[in-house]
Design a protein around this nucleic acid. Structure first.
Lengths: 196, 196
DNA sequence: GTCTATAATAGGATAGAC
DNA sequence: GTCTATCCTATTATAGAC
């Protein structure tokens, strides 16, 4: 079978996901209706159900789209010279986040994860990858200069990584809730709070 | 008019909110239907609409119920002797949180805040109170022993408070997403990560 | 104030033509 | 593969009896 057809099919699928993401940004994750996706995509019910067995499967694909891509920012930061401090790592990660429109939908996906186990699995997987990269960098940073950390660098990193990672939900939640949240100040504060 | 009637009326209202909170914990914020609240409360549609003009107003009351109460933990910690370190403050706050069932619904409310401005206002108000207490304590801690902080204690606290506060969403989100999230380890990590 | 019954609508999903 | 039309269920909110 011709390769073009497969590619076109995949492209149409992505198109539908794109439209659904826009719906989530406008109406919230649970506020998305098939009718809204139809309108936003310019397609029809038949087209959508030809690519997704039901609404839930579409929304899981949306969750994946929304959460993914954050890994790239960290991987890029990783490639720089020398180990980065916890604060510097977080600046790289969050500064990447805040310029992506889809990031506004991330808290939506986290909330949904508590009730849809497929969404939860997607979130856990991507969260795990980010945490893994972060942990590696923290070990490198703790090892680079002795005395930075009490005890073993790996043990320290295992313990501290979840707390360091908390800066990400902290940023997104405060940005969503507080009318005049100062994003730039938050980024400046990261190296201060986590400098050691 | 008799005072008892007023009190009874208020009590019935709280009863309905209680039932709605249980619905949120079971079905998610947007998954709550009037039918589910009717079932959970053992009341009827008429009873509910006699206390709330519509579903949205009920859900705003639910948001308030879910978010409030966190301030008490911090205020209690505040009363202890001597200024607490950032890590110790967070342990008090989060350890209080994790033993309350309703805390599982907090990420739901944060997600909803992006789309319902009344909910957002509730979240902003309560977040603001917690942040205010935290800031006061951080200033006291920074002032207590010189050299802990570069520059002015108040300026430092203003900058750092939002990042310290991030540990709360960080905890709740990771607990919701990660299948084997180690709550106790997170609490142990707080003083390590924020000790200075 | 609260109940039962119901109106009015919205939303998910399918059928069949093309 | 996609479109139009439609079925069916779920849901919000109201009306009127008690």
């Amino acid at each position: 079978m011709p390769k073009v057809t497969e590619a076109h099919r995949a492209a149409r699928r992505e198109e539908i996901i794109d439209a659904a993401v826009r719906c989530v940004l406008r109406d919230g994750y649970r506020g998305v209706s098939i009718a809204s996706v139809i309108q936003e995509s310019g397609l029809s019910a038949g087209a959508i159900y030809g690519h997704f067995v039901n609404k839930q499967e579409l929304l899981v694909a949306v969750a994946e789209r929304v959460l993914d891509g954050r890994v790239a920012d960290l991987a890029a930061a990783q490639r720089r010279n020398g180990p980065l401090s916890p604060g510097e790592l977080l600046v790289a990660l969050i500064d990447g986040l805040r310029h992506e429109d889809v990031s506004a939908a991330i808290p939506q996906v986290w909330a949904e994860a508590a009730f849809d186990d497929d969404v939860r699995a997607v979130a856990e997987r991507i969260f795990g990858r980010v945490r893994g990269i972060l942990r590696t960098e923290l070990v490198a940073w703790a090892t680079a200069s002795p005395g930075r950390v009490d005890g073993d660098a790996e043990e320290w990193a295992d313990l501290v990584t979840p707390v360091v990672l908390a800066a990400v939900p902290g940023f997104l939640v405060q940005r969503a809730i507080l009318r005049n949240f100062d994003e730039a100040a938050y980024l400046r504060a990261l190296p201060v709070a986590y400098r050691r």
